[in-house]
């Protein structure tokens, strides 16, 4: 379980991105919504233990991450993966990129290759494996980044606007994959503008505004809201 206690984050340039946020990630899928600049990305990076809060604590399974030693931090970080909104791929081929998380975890190269190949097959991007980052479309890059993130089977998968660049076909692949992983007890935190995605996937929705939690609701409520909006439109 990831838990934030009174987390405040101020960027070095003085901008307050998160203001005294306390929350627990317990559900299989948590959706974070909010306007641009409301602190979604910062929140995800704090949950991913990439940013150290200016104040407050980040507890992973009850342990305060930022007071742990290097070895323990590494162990915890390997349970959590964060996928950037604009995927950052490394130099080298797509396959090499997808093998990276396995290689750094000291897997044997052959084994890593096998695992990576099985992931690309499931995601339907096998034809891309020998391409390099400059030869990919934005949607393809996003799929590769997704494959790379889950190849080492982390417990928590934190996604920042995952479906932005995807067409409906690819979106479906990703959503199905998420549902499959949820069945395997993996947990997702997804920041998105996409209300439909939120409605389809989520069991819990956190709304952020100016670095604060505006409210926490369930997807059923959202679904009802969307329906009512659609209904109203029909009437008028």
């Amino acid at each position: 379980m990831i838990e934030l206690q009174n987390v405040t984050f101020v960027y070095p340039n003085g901008i307050l991105a998160l203001d005294n946020v306390t929350l627990k990630i317990t559900d299989e899928i948590t959706i974070i919504m909010g306007a641009n600049g409301s602190g979604k990305t910062t929140l995800l990076k704090i949950l991913a233990c990439l940013y150290k809060p200016t104040r407050g604590r980040v507890l992973i399974d009850g342990r305060d991450f930022w007071v742990l030693n290097k070895k323990e931090r590494l162990k915890i970080r390997r349970k959590i993966v964060y996928i950037h909104e604009n995927p950052v791929l490394f130099r080298g081929t797509v396959l090499e990129n997808i093998m990276y998380p396995l290689i750094v975890r000291d897997h044997h190269v052959e084994e890593a290759r096998k695992k990576a190949l099985s992931i690309v097959e499931k995601l339907g991007i096998k034809h891309l494996i020998n391409r390099r980052r400059q030869e990919l479309s934005a949607g393809e890059a996003q799929l590769v980044a997704f494959a790379r993130a889950i190849v080492a089977d982390p417990e928590y998968i934190l996604m920042d606007e995952p479906t932005n660049a995807l067409d409906s076909e690819k979106r479906e692949i990703v959503e199905n994959f998420i549902i499959q992983l949820v069945k395997k007890r993996r947990k997702f935190v997804i920041a998105t503008h996409d209300r439909l995605l939120a409605a389809r996937l989520s069991s819990k929705i956190i709304e952020l505004s100016e670095g604060k939690i505006l409210r926490i609701s369930s997807s059923n409520e959202l679904l009802a809201k969307i329906k009512s909006i659609l209904f109203q439109k029909d009437e008028s």
């Binding site: 080298g92 090499e96 290689i103 750094v104 190269v109």
Partner: peptide
């Protein structure tokens, strides 16, 4: 590809 880095 990045291999295991040894400080050694």
């Amino acid at each position: 590809m990045v291999k295991k880095v040894d400080r050694k």
